[in-house]
């Protein structure tokens, strides 16, 4: 009755509770970066490229400590810890997972904003209709921070002018 196994010549499956290698489902990821903020060892990075208009969420399982904080904070359930544990690979690049998402292009100035198209879509989905209509958000969300601030400032100045006049 040996208790050892002929591993790696036999298959070994981790229990369902096991926190294994993390994996991002690229279909679900909206690129919000909540996981980036929560990750203690900086295993997940957010890299924005404003020239090409992309955001990369880069997951490096070589740095990952399997704490599952990312799983807890993910709003869409895109990042999940699988119960796989075999990470050995001759190629360092096998440890890296990249999700590339498109950034929103500002409707006013044409520059890229610091949020992704999917983020906007998600936000529009979960916000109640009344708020969307009241604030005219459907329009506003496609404008970058600077233009929005400028818009608000301009509107205020105009309003003050009117009052003064």
């Amino acid at each position: 009755m040996p208790v050892t196994l002929r591993y790696p010549f036999t298959e070994l499956e981790a229990p369902p509770e096991y926190r294994g290698l993390p994996h991002i489902d690229p279909k679900l990821c909206i690129g919000c970066g909540a996981c980036v903020n929560a990750c203690p060892p900086d295993a997940i990075l957010r890299i924005d490229d404003y020239d090409r208009g992309t955001r990369k969420i880069v997951l490096d399982i070589g740095r990952c400590i399997r704490c599952a904080r990312c799983e807890e904070v993910c709003p869409t359930g895109a990042i999940r810890l699988t119960n796989l544990f075999e990470a050995a690979s001759p190629d360092r690049r096998d440890h890296i997972e990249v999700v590339e998402l498109r950034l929103v292009r500002c409707k006013v100035c044409g520059n890229y904003t610091d949020f992704t198209e999917r983020q906007v879509k998600k936000a529009l989905q979960i916000l109640p209709k009344e708020i969307l209509e009241e604030e005219a958000l459907e329009e506003k969300v496609f404008i970058c921070r600077n233009c929005r601030r400028k818009g608000t400032v301009d509107a205020t100045i105009n309003a003050t002018k009117e009052v003064v006049l």
């Binding site: 509770e17 096991y18 599952a68």
Partner: peptide, 19 residues
């Protein structure tokens, strides 16, 4: 010891560094 390690894996998700 392995009994305990496997138990901890089931309880917390990892054999050691329970997190």
């Amino acid at each position: 010891r392995e009994h305990v390690m496997w138990l901890c894996e089931r309880l917390t998700g990892n054999r050691k560094t329970y997190g």
